[in-house]
Design a protein around this nucleic acid. Structure first.
Lengths: 145, 145
DNA sequence: TAGTATTCACTGCGCGACGCAGTGAATGCG
DNA sequence: CGCATTCACTGCGTCGCGCAGTGAATACTA
């Protein structure tokens, strides 16, 4: 019950951040994941981590590129691929929102001990891993429709 | 970093559940919140807890009613209002998905002690509360556009 | 009590994100 | 050297959504 409200709140919060930046929740989600590990990604990788088709991922990159958040560059190893790289100075505008709201979150974390943070992080990590196997199971199960 | 991936995974998972049921992520989100406290809600309350406008909330209830997940009933106290009540037997189809996936999640929780679960729950509860105040702050801050 | 303002659910309208299916280019394989 | 596969990309149609307006019901005020 607690986690339901927690996750629902995150969806709303993500939406609010997106509105504030004039972006879409999907775009913010994508930028969040891109900056988590700022290495260049292919369009297909972006499609996988956002759950979209490659076609929609192309449009997503179109929007982000038009907004100046990322740049496209051809891959020298595989000329079919396109490498999408975030633009740090533009991304900073996004993280600025987080920084503004950061202290409150920081104090929330500071109230926990190291051991407690480890417990929380472990739970999230395991839930993250489990969700992937569960999603595969969902997709292989016939639909109840 | 851990929470980013955790939350991103939830979005994908929610999407997968929605696809599996032939619904939209927003609809699943709404049903999840409705069943969290199965009391009847007005359309406006649904709009608030999903972050939609009242107009879109009307369409949302339309879809859910057409699918048989909820029923509309007039409010006797205030005849402007419409009370939306979930249909248990139909909702069961949704929770069946959770039940099927439940044991794995249960074992995830069982690996934690009571004290650890309390730490996690407390963190989620506080993050939930904080997100609301942060969203208000976001909305009152001028957009950087 | 009469008149105004507010709140509720609802409805056309247009926008735009998305999935689907197909395209061409580049790569890997036998 | 063919053939299948994979990649990013592109029209097309669908549909969820916000916006602005409607009528009905309620709350407020003189």
């Amino acid at each position: 019950m607690e986690s339901r409200r927690y996750l629902a709140a995150y969806v709303l919060f993500n939406q609010a951040v997106a509105d504030h930046l004039g972006l879409h929740p999907t775009d913010v989600q994508c930028l969040s994941l891109l900056t988590a590990d700022p290495g260049p990604r292919t369009v297909k990788q972006i499609a996988e981590m956002t759950g979209l088709t490659t076609g929609s991922a192309t449009r997503l990159v179109d929007r982000l590129e038009r907004g100046g958040y990322v740049v496209r560059a051809p891959d020298r190893q595989d000329r079919r691929r396109v490498l999408v790289t975030p633009v740090p100075e533009r991304i900073a505008r996004v993280t600025a929102v987080w920084d503004d709201l950061g202290p409150a979150w920081q104090s929330l974390l500071d109230d926990h001990s190291e051991a407690e943070l480890e417990v929380i992080a472990r739970h999230m990590r395991r839930a993250y891993e489990l969700s992937h196997t569960q999603m595969q199971r969902l997709r292989s199960t016939p639909k109840p429709d």
